[in-house]
Amino acid sequence: MAATGEALTPQGYIQHHLTNLSVGEGFWTWHIDSLFFSVGLGVLFLWLFRSVGKKATTGVPGKLQCFVEMIVEFVDSSVKETFHGRNPVIAPLALTIFVWVFMMNFMDMVPVDWIPSLALAAGIPYMKVVPTTDLNITFSMALGVFVLIIYYSIKVKGISGFVKELTMQPFNHWAMIPVNFLLETVTLIAKPISLALRLFGNLYAGELIFILIALMYGANWALSTLGVTLQLGWLIFHIMVITLQAFIFMMLTVVYLSMAHEDH
């Protein structure tokens, strides 16, 4: 599945699959495919849940409503177990993260060549369909969470409280302020970075393995048969990974925000 001008080599194939469709130069490059799929899936999620929410009956719910309510209740109970304050933002935030990340991860389940082939037939040279394998996507979500962490830290504890938290811990002595500040800043910065990189790493690796398995189909029939088995196995295993990663992203967000709300 080589793009225009690329030779059909394993390297070229992998390279092609890992290249975003982009416009712009330098920093002002936009990954059209990542944005398209992530926003599309986000809109799909919001539209689906919104339409169910509008039609929601308090009587006997339909199957779709049951499904949606199951997810909502699952997220709600997870949030309630972890986050003990009262904040109307946390639960919807967690729901958005969980479902959206799951849906973006789920694009990984689509066989790796389907959408890029279609795109190529339509004249689009590159198409990377799993938004969470784009570091920009995972980082932007982590950044959003990071902004919320700082916002709520300052809102709950005040600027002085937040500064005190950064400088007077873990060693409560004025002489230790630089050390404390260094430690606490690293702790703070590590939160969004770990969030973003964990999701990105897992999904990127998963996608890469799918691509490597897909490479086997180009070889002889024995390797192709093996490839089918491997793909199926990896797919089943990956179902767990994508769900788990969505859940971890959500839970860590809730935990970080819960920590932001706690006054030491």
Partner: peptide, 27 residues
Amino acid sequence: INATLLGQTVAFLLFVWFCMKFVWPPL
């Protein structure tokens, strides 16, 4: 890292806002 980051951040914040306003309460 490029401008996709900014676009996605805006989308993320909008989605969370929408979810909080129109999706979570009725459900």
